[in-house]
Design a protein around this nucleic acid. Sequence first.
DNA 1: CTGAACATGTAACACGTTACATGATTGA
DNA 2: TCAATCATGTAACGTGTTACATGTTCAG
Lengths: 178, 178
Amino acid sequence: MLGLLSAGPASGYDLLKTFELSLENVWPATQSQLYAELGRLAKEGLVRVAAEGPRGRKEYEITEEGRAELRHWLVEVPPTLTRRSDMLLRVFFLDQVGADAARGYLERLAERAVHEHDQLRGIREFVISQGDDALRLYGDIALEWGLRLTAAQRDWAEWAAGRVGALEHEKAGQAGAE
Amino acid sequence: MLGLLSAGPASGYDLLKTFELSLENVWPATQSQLYAELGRLAKEGLVRVAAEGPRGRKEYEITEEGRAELRHWLVEVPPTLTRRSDMLLRVFFLDQVGADAARGYLERLAERAVHEHDQLRGIREFVISQGDDALRLYGDIALEWGLRLTAAQRDWAEWAAGRVGALEHEKAGQAGAE
DNA sequence: CTGAACATGTAACACGTTACATGATTGA
DNA sequence: TCAATCATGTAACGTGTTACATGTTCAG
């Protein structure tokens, strides 16, 4: 939220739309959370109500303290390593469902990755055509990560499905020979 | 937990050690959570106390219902897409700290990825030498994902740092020409 | 005049974390 | 005997989600 407000004042409702539209893929947030958090940030002096509009609209702006906190978080607080992937957790126990179903699971992962990749390509087309320089640069860098991640996932899932398939045939061959 | 118990009976303490050692990178869990969850699973009939040992040790085993639930989760419940990456979120607001600090951030990401990659390579050395066939296959597939992910992150972060650096020089050149 | 969009807020619930709290075995 | 390890459990707290609850403005 400090990041979004650093680009200019906005209401809780505005921020909500931004989260839903552009930030949804990296940091989903709900309406309740947003309003509650705005209250907290205001109490801490990191944001302030700059103007009030119709329908009870409150336009928030970031304060100097808020900007300092944002900069601090950006470069000094170490990013957390992305742990906890249920997609990967399942892989550990895939022997419980047999090679055939396991291969199916991995193939579906590959398909999903292709689908996500295509969606991101669509978004990039759209983003390239607008926005200011800084946002275009960093937005594009983030998008590129999405593209590389989904491509890697597709490749890996296909490779893994192949390995499971090879084991499947090996076993079948042995069974036939016995 | 059902997955771990599907390989054989274990106590809460045993499971805790497994989470700390091998599952830590895909699904960290705390001691409190484990014991609470074992109680819940037992109440639902997905696990049962198979034996009691010294020091109040309770050995749990998975029930048929538990096994069915595990298989159901493995192949029928769609994996959640890994959202919410604060590492990527920061990228969106990197223009707030200037090109120089932004480049530093991305370079640190690259270094971190290299470090993680090396660690995983070490783990693979260790894992290859032991374990049964099924666990070796799927454990290795999971490890391979970690290797590909960290490699992709290194490449991306270096590429991104390069792009930011290029912008930096361009701006400097313009400033010098004015 | 009416429905969509704008706009904000609270309450109940679930889950995860940290800290608290206790006790039994066993090997050196 | 004493420290490490084994072993289990509860309580307080923070954060996020879903659902509830309400009211305003504006375009057609």
